[in-house]
């Protein structure tokens, strides 16, 4: 049970200090979540913290590979706008 940060991440640092397990580290080319530490915030918060502040759709995925913030969910733009939505 762990989340993963993928290529859409812009390294904006917003998630890093919020993680109750200190599972996130600044890395190159993008931030990473230590799968051994990540608890998906269960027991700490009602919502996963990294995914609740992340400004980029598709940047954080769950164990099943599904984006926690799917295309259109943050910007209100439908996925037909390729500039903002995920196109991995």
């Amino acid at each position: 049970m762990a989340f993963r940060i993928v290529a859409h991440c812009t390294n904006c640092w917003a998630c890093l200090s919020l993680c109750p397990q200190q599972a996130i580290r600044a890395a190159s080319p993008h931030f990473q979540i230590n799968a051994d530490r990540c608890t998906e915030c269960v027991g700490d918060y009602a919502d996963p913290q990294c995914a609740s502040i992340c400004p980029v759709e598709g940047a954080i995925i769950d164990a099943a590979g599904q984006p926690l913030n799917p295309p259109g969910s943050l910007t209100g733009l439908s996925p037909e706008f390729p500039t903002l939505s995920s196109t991995s």
Partner: peptide
Amino acid sequence: PACNIQCHYCNR
């Protein structure tokens, strides 16, 4: 770098 809101005129 971090932001706590999203504005419609900004793209991070």
